[in-house]
Design a protein around this nucleic acid. Structure first.
Length: 429
RNA sequence: GUGGGCGUAGCUCAGUUGGUUAGAGCGCCAGGUUGUGGUCCUGGAGGUCGCGGGUUCGAUCCCCGUCGCUCACCCCA
């Protein structure tokens, strides 16, 4: 580090994830991948940035996310792109572009970027796990997507969370409802909160989401979308709720649940963690978006999906006091100590690793004592020692790091028998 | 975007009512004789006290600005 340069830091609202935290991440992602495959989803990887229109038309230009939270930039060719603020729109764009056979069931893990002021559970770069199903509006799929989320959370050890559910209706019945709501808001505009008193007409549904007591009071007297669904939408919703309860997943109707993206139709849901005290208590959410494909220029195609924030899941697990689980095993088996200057460690390590044995070694030609200390801290079960004596004899000393008297358990084997002897020692518990 | 709290070694934190070489624990490194870890002992490295400016004879400690962290509002994962 030169004294002239002040060290760089990770950008605001972003974080480096190092061990042991990264091991928890790995476990969460691996668990989700396992669930995704169990539910017959395939992995899809889409670009981190898209034409800004994918998001503007997808999540709605009037949404907060599109309006003031996107990272928008022009590249050197003056194309205007946005860093993905969410996972669904890009997947639908990819669906339209490649036209895979339906139903198309895809899962993803991706960073998401939103320009917000960071706080507990909220970052400028966070990471989402999610799934999308394109090409069917069967309520059984809604149930399956929600079930995947629910079972996944349980597999992570979470227990204190609730499923909130609502229906946004489809375009026709929602439009009719919005007019009812609009009329009600117009009549009571004076009583709304400061912000919505003037902005309610832009997107009346957003007022339902407002937590200000003033707005809550007004909307409580007004019409609720759930009571104004058309027959088809009502039936669809009922079948989703029934399907969920048939597999013992309790859902809680929340008529105010209007999620932040404009593309939702019919089923919308959110999992909230009770252990997370703050406002950022949603660990996952999603819903149906039967018009999104069209809005992005594709054929009319139904879709549904959900996304879950890895950071929030980890926070929730911590808040619930659940021990990190689903950790990917990382136990080092062998540590090679070499005090010669003949690259013995280099060869041994290569040989053992080729045999599938997790092996580490010391560097920098340190003393035997020093290398032993490193071996001890590494957590390896066995140490292989090669000093001048072993080197001259063409042998290697094998030492069990879990036993306290090395004179009893330490033994020497011929250089050529090392891999076999190590494998044997490792298999007997 | 608005507002509150905070910013001292890798980590967790003391500390100076402004005054000579800023401390602890953990971690790290090296020793404790002749090639062997975990305990113990000894020693050591490591800090422009976030950065810049101001007040002052003198600031890590006061003031201002700035950057960053954190929490809340908003919105969401």
């Amino acid at each position: 580090m030169s004294d002239a340069v002040t060290p760089f830091q990770a950008p605001i609202g972003t974080h480096d994830v190092l061990a042991p935290r990264s091991a928890e991440w790995e476990g969460v992602v691996a668990t989700f991948a396992q669930f995704a495959y169990r539910y017959d989803f395939e992995l899809v990887i889409t670009p981190m940035f898209e034409d800004v229109g994918v998001f503007n038309r997808g999540i709605g230009e009037e949404s907060d996310v599109a309006k003031k939270e996107m990272y928008v930039f022009a590249d050197r060719g003056e194309r205007v792109y946005a860093l993905r603020p969410e996972g669904t729109a890009p997947v639908v764009r990819a669906f339209i572009q490649h036209n895979p056979t339906t139903p198309w069931k895809a899962w993803y893990v991706t960073p998401a970027f939103r320009y917000e002021r960071p706080q507990a559970g909220r970052y400028r770069q966070h990471h989402q796990l999610g799934v999308e199903v394109l090409g069917t509006d069967d309520p059984a799929v809604d149930v399956e997507v929600i079930a995947l989320a629910e079972r996944f959370y349980r597999a992570l050890g979470l227990t204190r969370f609730r499923l909130l559910i609502n229906s946004m209706g489809h375009d026709i019945c929602r439009a009719a409802y919005v007019e009812l709501l609009r009329a009600h808001l117009e009549k009571n505009a004076e009583r709304l909160c400061d912000e919505h008193r003037t902005t309610w007409s832009v997107n009346p549904l957003r007022v339902l989401d407002c937590k200000d007591p003033a707005c809550v009071a007004v909307t409580a007297e007004g019409p609720m979308l759930i009571d104004h669904l058309c027959d088809d939408c009502r039936d669809h919703f009922e079948r989703v709720v029934k399907g969920l309860s048939s597999i013992d997943i309790e859902s809680q109707l929340d008529p105010r649940l209007v999620r932040g993206f404009d593309y939702y139709t019919r089923t919308t849901f959110e999992f909230v963690a009770d252990a997370l005290g703050g406002a950022q208590n949603a660990i996952g959410g999603g819903g149906r978006y039967d018009k999104l494909a069209e809005q992005l220029g594709g054929k009319p195609t139904s879709g549904i999906g959900f996304g879950s924030g890895i950071e929030r899941l980890l926070l929730t697990r911590e808040a619930e006091g659940v021990e990190p689980r689903n950790l990917v095993e990382r136990s080092l088996e062998v540590f090679v100590i070499d005090t010669t200057t003949h690259d013995v460690a280099t060869v041994l390590v290569d040989e053992l690793r080729a045999a599938g044995i997790a092996t580490a070694r010391a560097y920098d030609n340190r003393s035997m004592k020093s290398q032993m200390k490193v071996a001890d801290k590494s957590g390896a079960r066995l140490a292989l020692l090669v000093g001048p004596q072993e080197f001259a004899a063409g042998e290697v000393t094998i030492r069990d790091l879990r036993s306290d008297d090395f004179e009893q358990t330490q033994r020497r084997v011929a250089r050529g028998d090392v891999a076999f002897a190590v494998a044997e020692l490792l298999t007997k518990s």
